[in-house]
Write a protein that binds this DNA or RNA. Sequence first.
RNA 1: UCCGGCGUAGCUCAGUGGUAGAGCGGGUGACUGUUAAUCACUUGGUCGUAGGUUCGAAUCCUACCGCCGGAGCCA
Length: 589
Amino acid sequence: MSSSPRRTPTPPGRSSGRAAIPSSRGPRSSSRSRAGPAGSPRSRRSSPRRASTSGASSSSAPQPASWRPRSPSTTSSGPARSSGSTERQRRSGTPRPHGLCRAPALPRADRSRYAPRHSEVLMPKAERIADVLAGRTPPGAPVTVQGWIRTRRDSKAGLSFLHLHDGSCFAALQVVAPATLDNYADEVLRLTAGCAVTASGTLVPSQGQGQALELVADSVEVVGWVDDPETYPIQPKRHTFEYLREVGHLRVRTNTIGAVARVRHSLAMAIHRFFDERGFYWVHTPIVTASDAEGAGEMFRVSTLDLGNLPRTPDGAIDFAEDFFGRPTYLTVSGQLNIESYCLALTRVYTFGPTFRAENSNTSRHLSEFWMVEPEIAFADLGDNADLAEDLLRSAFRAILDERADDLAFFAERIDREAITRLEALVASSFARMEYTEAVEVLQRSGRAFEFPVAWGLALQAEHERYLCEEYAKRPVVVVNYPKEIKAFYMRLNDDGRTVAAMDVLAPGIGEIVGGSQREERLDVLDARMRELHFDPAAYWWYRDLRRYGTVPHAGFGLGFDRAVAYATGMANIRDVIPFPRTPGSADF
RNA sequence: UCCGGCGUAGCUCAGUGGUAGAGCGGGUGACUGUUAAUCACUUGGUCGUAGGUUCGAAUCCUACCGCCGGAGCCA
């Protein structure tokens, strides 16, 4: 929209082969996801754990029946399917011990597609590896697991060790594959990182160090091979995050991004739980908005007009009456104005959804598409608002400490030594509170030579905010009551006439994680502020109505969800805590 | 957008004017209840692209493309 035009050709520095991967793999992955979440209603109903909506993770869900091909009508129709079979047949016609040909023999491929699975005959379902490792499987009982190979190690003692991940937890399950398996030489010895398998066997105490339990397999069925192990993008080694962003469709198979995905989920659920337990209602505010001056940032235009042939009014301007909504529309930069409407009826509400900013921001803390949590509370002032922000953050991070200890241990070991201690400190202590005026004094007294000037009336720069929370308070700081000139029109004017009831929560290492305010509930004051800032009150007629009909003091804030995930994990770049980051000039995958 | 840095094998990087390298990965073999196993051999590059300087350019110059970090904007 308002960002720069897309470069069309394959970017230099990328091999054409790699660039071709998405298109060549598209059909396959989509067919897999069809076989997953779109499985039979029966299996979906009977599996409360299958909350995931992604094709990849659903494949690891404990319901073989839900993604196994079942009826001829869903498995064998369509030219793509049959040509795929032909392709596989041709490639596997002359099996070679190594090289590019790693497809299994045709009968096996056929069986996996059209016949009942081995695992289904013996086992009612597969277990999540998390459940297996947590001891929820009786010792000695037969177990089936499904997942992707991370490493394979062979022993001349007549067995191979497979480390299998299914994403259910940080740890891998060690599968011991004895050489006596039918397909040991043909298949097990050819397994490489990324291969998908179904392994059945018996859970036993491990003879080796490094894990308490392991699965001694009596069957290892290869579900999906890796075409070319040499160029499989995710190798069992350290990759830079920059590189992993180039393989965004596969990077979740790494320890780090997988752990981020689980923490992200748990944090989102903890936030919903926090609000639900306190009587807040989740409100789905619109993504498309016509408010073009919410003041929160540049907006993406939403339009169906033909950009090559724009309709014009008689005076030559673009005729938005011809556009889809009959007026200029944009992607939302905040659900706040809408959530205030629901707040003034439901009292406690919040939004949790995607938000869009077309700023040309190129930093480790900004995304063009990000997720924001925006609570709004009625009959409340700025103090209540700050209390809510603090309670929310502490509660949500407490939940992460409780629920994702395995992933956090990894972050503390490999990503950020302070990952756990920082969260524990935040959960255990209260946030510092500080007036803007006081913050300015603290900065002026600090003796620091800041790059940007510190004076009452000026905005706090990143270096100032960092000093306040990282060095002065050494914990999150809530700064309140900013000069009205540097804050938005809807923030409530304080009695001093020069400050507004705004607040920012500054977190060490991440900066501003929450921004909010008590809203101006007095219509005359609101109108005066809008006039000062040259806003057209008529455009905000419905927002003004809220002040005409039963207005009450109310307040709310925005929590940058992705920044919270970054804070919780210690990840340095926000692009690595959202599944598919959108940033200026980049909307891959 | 501004400032700075980077672009060399599938990945991580070394190579600062004179025969393109290492580790990891892949392959082969040895060895082993292994733990990102170990050891040996082997495979693998149009040095981002296009110009220019030079007898000679991965190396120096220019432009462009891409990526990263910092800043601004903000969550």
